[in-house]
Write a protein that binds this DNA or RNA. Structure first.
Lengths: 189, 189
DNA sequence: ACCTGAACACCGTTCAAGT
DNA sequence: ACCTGAACACCGTTCAAGT
């Protein structure tokens, strides 16, 4: 009788921080942050929950930090993008918003004190775009924070689905976001 | 021997939703959201944790909803305030920001799907101020969402204390907030 | 009506042990 | 080096029982 070539620990892909983070993100996106537990994460990875601690010694805290880093660090290559700096920021903001909404479950974590480094890098890259666009240093600092604050706050409002002043008339969030963005960009610089 | 007039359940102030919410807010502000547990809340109220369920049948979910309602519903009497509508909004935004920062521990809850009614009311009152100020309906809707999104998002950035592009040069958050606010208000209307 | 006590199913995490 | 199993202290919540 032919036996399968060892259905044991050996021929599973080994655990790694990347695989763990990816699986965690999938649970959060699919079932919500509240259902992300070490035991369930272990199940998803076909491993006992305790195995995870070997790769993330700081445990769940470290896991959540990783999730924030994954979604809160800004979209890359803002530098290479074409067009005026306003166009660059417009497309950056669109990308960032899309990412926040795609992983809405981690928004509460982004808002918590976790992992300031990720957001600091994002702010820095925004300021760089503004500075290169010829905006004065002080104005660039203000505009960067204003823009990032707006994108995060607006994403939060969207996720919660605020209705138009009590009536349940649907809001066109895409149009709303773009209009607010233009309002900010027109005042910047 | 004179006995104290019955140190038992009878002469404690009876539990109420207000007292429960107040105690919960105190725990969150003082120790963080993570340390708000039904058992600890019971201790603070000098009662068994299970007694809380008699007043909040939906349990912890309802408790958290109450916290959000308490901090996310906008400051009152925006209507009676004096000055131009820009001044009214400026002072409203300052008050709202102060409240969010005073209860930073609940910010993650505000960002979660809980209790959309509180935020909807806030948006509605903002639009009313703008409408009365003579701003067109469509612009008022945009400005209201932009402003609220900015205030919430900026509060989140502040709480996390993003450093100035990696260097730990301190940020003057008050000035930063006001400048961003002016940027938005100058474009509105 | 209001609160308690015991119990249940579930957490995150530790630690010694296996391979 | 990498994973498991059992255990610990702690959750939220239910339910029957007390007053």
């Amino acid at each position: 009788m032919v036996r399968q070539p060892s259905i044991n620990a050996q021929n599973r892909a080994p655990l790694s921080i990347e695989r763990i983070t990816e699986a965690a993100l999938q649970i959060v996106d699919g079932q919500g942050l509240g259902r992300l537990t070490m035991r369930r994460l272990g199940d998803a990875l076909e491993v006992e929950a305790m195995a995870i601690y070997h790769h993330l010694p700081r445990g769940k805290e470290q896991l959540l930090d990783g999730l924030v880093a994954h979604v809160a660090s800004g979209p890359a290559d803002t530098g290479a993008a074409a067009g005026s700096w306003r166009d660059v920021l417009r497309s950056w903001a669109g990308d960032y918003r899309a990412r926040l909404l795609a992983h809405a479950g981690v928004l509460p974590l982004v808002v918590t004190r976790r992992n300031p480094a990720a957001l600091a890098a994002t702010v820095a890259s925004l300021r760089e775009v503004l500075r290169r666009g010829g905006v004065r240093e002080e104005s660039a600092a203000v505009a960067a924070h204003t823009l990032l604050g707006y994108v995060i706050g607006h994403a939060a409002l969207e996720v919660r689905g605020t209705e138009e002043d009590g009536a349940d008339r649907a809001v066109d969030w895409d149009a709303r976001f773009t209009a607010g963005l233009d309002l900010i960009l027109s005042g910047a610089g």
